[in-house]
Write a protein that binds this DNA or RNA. Structure first.
Length: 207
DNA sequence: TACCAGGTCCTCG
DNA sequence: CGAGGACATGGT
């Protein structure tokens, strides 16, 4: 199985995905914040629901690193309610922002200047950030060449007869076989999600 | 009406 | 460790 060919096939079938399209000219810090918040809110949740939560934060003029960090957890939970697991996620968001504040003075640029794997370890130590969430942040907000693995990715490989024991084996499988390119990783992951969504809608095996 | 959605943490054996 | 449960809303 050659991931490069699979990528081309998906790209042909689904077209460009333009993920994390940060609307408006907001600058890096705001964009990175939004991506990281989105990465946490989308855990086991549809992006459609996450969008409602993000809109709530914007409407409440609460979508800044400092506001999210300092507002009462109960209030944050209510704002992100549509994304589900809102109590858990309010806790996770504030744990993450506390980390960014404590280690990097609230600067995402500074945080993502760290070497990717070192930062990955730090992120994984934060409550609520597991491998997929950490890798999504690194790839989409930090522009680090880390291949993101999710449930669809595993299903995608499983259909081709490839399975592994743990997350990192899936990640390395792709990283070893693709050229080390951030845009490629970003697009590939998004395409696999597009494939997965279509598959679950149509209950079939897209290929 | 059930089941699923771009997971993660905690508890038990 | 590994399985099993909790967390929760909105769409189909």
């Amino acid at each position: 199985m050659d991931p490069r060919r699979e990528y081309m096939a998906l790209r042909r079938r689904y077209g460009p995905q333009h993920w994390w399209p940060v609307d408006g000219p907001k600058g890096y810090e705001a964009a990175a914040l939004e991506i990281c918040v989105g990465a946490i809110l989308t855990q086991n949740t549809s992006w459609q629901n996450v969008k409602k939560a993000l809109d709530n934060l914007r409407s409440a003029k609460a979508f800044s690193y400092k506001m999210l960090l300092t507002m009462p957890r109960k209030r944050l939970a209510q704002l992100i309610r549509p994304s589900g697991y809102y109590n858990q996620k309010a806790l996770k968001l504030q744990a993450f922002l506390t980390f960014v504040a404590a280690e990097y003075g609230g600067s995402f640029r500074k945080m993502f200047k760290q070497p990717a794997m070192a930062l990955r370890e730090q992120l994984l130590a934060v409550h609520g950030i597991g491998k997929e969430t950490a890798d999504s942040m690194l790839l989409y907000a930090g522009n680090k060449p880390i291949f993101v693995v999710d449930a669809y990715t595993k299903r995608f490989l499983a259909e081709k007869g490839i399975t592994f024991g743990d997350y990192d084996e899936y990640r390395v499988f792709f990283e070893k076989r693709l050229r080390r390119n951030v845009k490629l990783y970003q697009e590939f992951h998004a395409l696999i999600v597009a494939w997965g969504k279509e598959g679950s809608r149509k209950q079939n095996v897209a290929r």
